Amino acid sequence: MVYRIGQKVTGTVTGIQPYGVFVALDESVQGLIHISECGHGFVKALDEQFTVGQQLDVLVLDVDEYTHKISLSLRALHKAQDLLPQRAKKHYWTNRRIQTGFAPIAERLPGWTKAAIEELNQRGK
């Protein structure tokens, strides 16, 4: 069979290496899913995510006509939010009714200024 870039195909995992997963597309053609194409974000260990004999739907990324190597992708078939665990939304506990702004600083500034001037005058004596 002739494989084309952008084609979605089903294959069988034949081997797992630290750098990627080998997938048999038919009896004579095998492709590689590089670790960077196995999922969105950080991929911890491929042998925990895949098993030999597992059926996968993959997308053909590249076909090298000279070496006949086929690059495959799982990541291209899924949206990022489908593969990543859902994050809990953070809620920041703030009281929005208190609107102090710079008022406390403005209230204390004359006292700070007076104390600083007194300290400077005492050092100068």
Rank of each mutant, 00 (worst) to 15 (best):
E107T: 14
L77Y: 04
K89G: 04
M1T: 15
A115W: 02
N95Q: 12
F42I: 08
V23K: 00
S71K: 03
V52D: 04
D57M: 04
H34L: 08
K79R: 13
A24E: 00
F22D: 04
K69P: 02
I98M: 10
E48L: 12
I16E: 03
G111T: 04
P110E: 06
H78G: 02
T10K: 07
R75N: 03
A45M: 06
K90I: 09
L77P: 01
F50A: 01
T10L: 05
D62F: 13
D57C: 06
Q81A: 10
Q122A: 07
Y92M: 02
Q55G: 06
K8V: 06
V52A: 04
L109N: 11
G53L: 09
V52K: 11
Q54F: 00
P18V: 15
I70H: 04
I35V: 14
P104N: 07
Q99W: 12
A88L: 14
Q54E: 01
L56D: 00
T51H: 08
G41L: 10
V2N: 15
L84Y: 10
D82S: 15
T94S: 13
L74A: 01
K125N: 03
T10C: 06
A106W: 09
T51F: 06
L109Y: 13
Q122V: 04
C38S: 11
I35F: 13
I33F: 07
G41S: 12
A103N: 07
I98K: 05
L109C: 15
I33D: 02
G124Y: 05
V9Y: 00
L120G: 12
T12C: 01
A103C: 06
G31S: 04
K90Y: 01
S28K: 11
G31R: 06
E107W: 14
S36I: 12
Q86E: 10
K125A: 10
R4W: 15
H91F: 09
K8M: 06
Q17E: 12
E119N: 14
E27W: 02
H91R: 15
G124D: 13
T67W: 01
K44L: 09
T67G: 03
Y3D: 11
T100I: 09
L74I: 08
W93D: 13
P18E: 14
F22S: 05
A115K: 07
L74S: 08
A76R: 00
T12L: 00
S71M: 05
E65F: 01
T94N: 13
V43H: 04
Y19H: 13
P18G: 15
V23P: 00
S28M: 05
T10W: 03
V52L: 05
R97Q: 11
H78Q: 05
Y19F: 15
K89V: 09
Q55C: 04
R108E: 05
A76Q: 07
A88K: 13
L72T: 00
G39Y: 07
N121K: 09
V23A: 01
L46C: 02
R108Y: 06
I16A: 03
R123E: 12
H78W: 04
V9N: 01
V2C: 15
E107N: 11
T12P: 00
T94M: 15
Y19R: 11
L25G: 00
Y92I: 09
R97A: 08
K79C: 07
L77F: 06
